[in-house]
Design a protein around this nucleic acid. Structure first.
Lengths: 310, 310
DNA sequence: AACCTGTTTTTAATGTAAAAAAGACAGAGG
DNA sequence: CCTCTGTCTTTTTTACATTAAAAACAGGTT
């Protein structure tokens, strides 16, 4: 009745650690493992029992040791390590971005539960999430309305995002130059240069770096609503990145360069320059999102009206 | 297994209508009633059956007529007409505002379900709502953390609200003077004068008018995130209004006058003047919220640090 | 005492079931 | 042909049950 994804994820995580140990080596205590893997000792015990069962460790009394190194076949397949909730989120996003749903369509929970192989409870919980993303509308005692990933949606998101990010930069430049966020900025900038130097092979690493940069900026506003908003839309971006692969390397290169300009402006602490660079980057980013939307099937009409971006 | 609050609310609503009819008069068709009462015909039928059972209407074939006028005893008691969800929201808010919870406290669903007399399912659904209000934080596979109605909370809310409301006024003054929102503004202003003239008796009507005014402003931004944010925090305000009654008449009078200044600025369509008046009003409003917080038990410390309002 | 592990108790995640409300269908009457 | 009502079907809401995971407890070893 409850998935054991925590167990499976922990098991795999454990195998990763064992792979770096020599056979015959002793294992840390249960409590220590629990702390490192960020799960309860109960889960650790279950994992250790499973490892013993598979002959990877031996559960000798008082002392546990590695019997053999784990092979690829020992791992649980990746999809199973996702919690039911995360799994639904991903599949739902894929559906939306692939155009399986159309704007104005009514969704019913039983149907979705069947499609996604979970219960209505889990579906409901997630529909509520998407409601806050502005993609769904709840009709009490009735079905859910899919409002569509339209140009209006993108425009509304970016309007708010621009307000929030500009506000966050104001807080950021107030911070002392030796504070944590500024050190983080140094590290982020270095990573930008490193990525740029190996762009041909490493460009898929950009989204994570992008997320890290903007998250840091938003976090410095010290405002839960600003940060929550960013985190929410950032999962949306995550899925659009995953799905729209056209021109990826070129787009990422452009964004990296814009980030560097933006960072330079932040160092100048000149609000005017910051506003200009930040706005420029967000305009590009918004255009990317709009293009992702336009590329999707059934969506060509969504950008047909000229000037809709204004 | 499912409460019948829709039925009860509809039943009461129906009695209100019958009270304005003469005995012996005929009733509209089921479909028509359903449309007017905004429920399904199924519910209307159930209500009509119950009314017949109680001898208030007669279900003669082909024609239905009023037998007697409803009395106060015929109504379902008000609390029962609230959906379980709305009921939990209210009780939870009361708990929070009365200081039954303290910042940093862990909540567990089973306990709350017991306290509120519902199931864990309903509780969970509502905890998720409050998470978006920024009052709770979810610890996966663990309890929920109550973050407290603190001065930081009020500051963060009002920072965002100010950004949003100012942005909304920009959209508002772009609208043509004969558009719906401007006509609504005329009506709202008239209601302000009317309320001001009968302040001694009517001051409790202010919160609803306040809600209507700010909602209209926010709506003209045509941005779902801005409007959703306002609607969410506005329920919070609703409960603080309900609970903090000190100086109520005085506070409402001040707010009304500030609204009128604000409206005057809107008519001038001068951004500078609008910013000044809007900010002034929001500062007052924030101070009111902060005072509500401070008055609550266990909360005195929340405003003890001078300059926290800055 | 501090720590480690075996056991027991709580609690959150999530599937299932039943009732209420919505919606679809169909015959009857104007 | 349209509307109105009686019947049947779907779907949402909500309580409850069950399992995974966490937390508390307790005895044992150094």
């Amino acid at each position: 009745m409850k998935g054991n994804s925590v167990f499976k994820r922990c098991y795999n995580h454990c195998l990763d650690r064992l792979a770096q140990m020599a056979p015959g080596a002793g294992l840390p205590s249960e409590s220590e493992l629990a702390q490192r893997l960020e799960v309860s000792r109960t889960t650790v015990r279950a994992v250790l029992a499973a490892l013993a069962e598979r002959g990877i460790v031996r559960a000798a009394a008082g002392r546990r040791e590695v019997l053999r190194l784990p092979a690829a076949a020992d791992y649980f397949p990746d999809p199973q390590t996702m919690s039911a909730v995360a799994s639904v989120e991903r599949r739902f996003m894929d559906w939306i971005l692939q155009g399986d749903f159309r704007a104005g369509q009514l969704l019913n929970t039983a149907e979705l539960a069947r499609q996604f192989g979970t219960s209505t409870t889990t579906i409901r919980e997630h529909l509520a999430q998407f409601q806050h993303l502005g993609l769904l509308e709840r009709r009490p005692n009735s079905a859910w309305l899919f409002k569509g990933v339209t140009t209006e949606f993108a425009t509304e998101i970016y309007d708010v995002r621009e307000m929030f990010e500009l506000r966050a930069t104001r807080s950021f430049i107030e911070l002392p130059a030796d504070s944590g966020p500024w050190q983080e900025l140094d590290a982020i900038e270095a990573d930008h240069h490193a990525l740029l130097a190996n762009m041909d092979t490493d460009y898929p690493r950009f989204p994570r770096l992008d997320e890290r940069f903007h998250h840091m900026i938003h976090a410095s506003a010290q405002n839960r609503f600003i940060l929550d908003f960013y985190d929410t839309v950032s999962t949306l971006f995550h899925y659009t990145y995953r799905w729209n692969k056209t021109d990826e390397k070129q787009r990422n290169t452009t964004a990296l360069l814009e980030h560097l300009d933006y960072i330079e402006a932040l160092r100048s602490r000149d609000p005017r320059a910051i506003d200009a660079r930040c706005r420029k980057h967000l305009r590009t980013s918004r255009a990317t999102l709009l293009r992702s939307i336009a590329v999707g099937p059934f969506r060509i009409d969504a950008i047909s009206s000229p000037g809709a971006q204004s």
